[in-house]
Nucleic acid binder design. Structure first.
Length: 276
DNA sequence: CCAATTGTTATTTA
DNA sequence: ATAAATAACAATTG
């Protein structure tokens, strides 16, 4: 479920615990979200440590603790972070909980495609620092996009936009939103885009990321079903899942079909298979 | 029972 | 050998 802006939204929730100590760590040992994670070390280092600060990159979050603890969380498909009262009893799929004096920081993930990582040391670990430069950073340039599209020239552009090594944080709905705004058909081979289309694509990537962060991450309420409250009807997002949905620009019917292995929504009246 | 799901990754195919 | 397509992961919901 969570893409760039939603990840930032969830990180902000847990930021309620900045400056407070972790009294205890509760986790469901052996669950898939802990694959490759040294949970014994995690528990040892985080118990009694203070949560100092946190940040997001792509679809991941990094929480920094006193004593050199670095906690990485990826929400996968169905994960979410919540803040619950100190007396809260764990619910189903609450696989990982940091207990503080005045609250509990809860990671809930039914499908467990999410992930918990932990490292100890003076600096953030490699699995964090190697994440690709953010779409909103100055390192994300039209030339870099053009180069990447050239190396993925036969894959549909929709599939290429989902590749985290170059478009960190962009997921299924954001990719569709970007292509719709750029008026590019999702099945177009990445290598078939004109230089002008590539510049437009680059611009729309940044625009959608920026607006999504403003609209979603800045808010304090609840998420998935309520996400519609934050996103205006001028976005494809508000129409993409409805049967019989109409393109907000052309007012013509939208199409849903699998592209690059994911359900994809587009406006055939606006997004043509041949370059214009 | 069947099909769906806003993500990644291992395996298979071309 | 490389890139692209597909299957698999797990749990729930419609």
């Amino acid at each position: 479920m969570p893409e760039l802006a939603e990840v930032e939204f969830f990180r902000k929730r847990w930021s309620a615990g900045h400056g407070a100590k972790v009294l205890s760590v509760q986790l469901h040992e052996g669950k898939k979200i802990f694959r490759g994670c040294d949970t014994a070390l995690l528990i040892k280092k985080l118990t009694g440590a203070k949560l100092l600060d946190s940040e997001t990159a792509a679809k991941q979050m990094l929480f920094h603790f006193s004593g050199g603890g670095w906690l990485g969380i990826h929400l996968g498909m169905s994960g979410e972070l919540r803040v619950e009262p100190a007396a809260y009893p764990s619910a189903k799929h609450d696989h990982f909980v940091l207990v503080q004096k005045h609250r509990q920081l809860v990671f809930n993930d039914p499908r467990m495609f999410g992930r918990v990582q932990f490292a100890s040391g003076p600096k953030p670990p490699a699995w964090w620092t190697k994440i690709a430069p953010a779409v909103l950073s100055s390192k994300f340039t039209p030339a870099m996009v053009a180069d990447f599209l050239g190396r993925r020239s036969r894959a549909p552009i929709k599939a290429v936009l989902l590749m985290q090594e170059r478009f960190p944080g962009i997921g299924n709905w954001m990719a569709d939103e970007i292509l719709w705004r750029a008026a590019i058909h999702p099945k177009r081979p990445a290598g078939s885009l004109t230089p002008s289309e590539i510049r437009t694509l680059h611009r729309k990537c940044r625009h959608v990321c920026k607006l999504a962060l403003e609209m979603i991450a800045g808010k304090g309420g609840k998420l998935p079903p309520e996400l519609n409250r934050y996103i205006p009807k001028t976005w494809l997002f508000r129409h993409r899942w409805k049967n019989g949905g109409l393109c907000p620009i052309t007012k013509k019917p939208l199409i849903r079909e699998e592209v690059g292995g994911r359900t994809t929504c587009w406006s055939p009246a606006r997004q043509k298979l041949r370059a214009r």
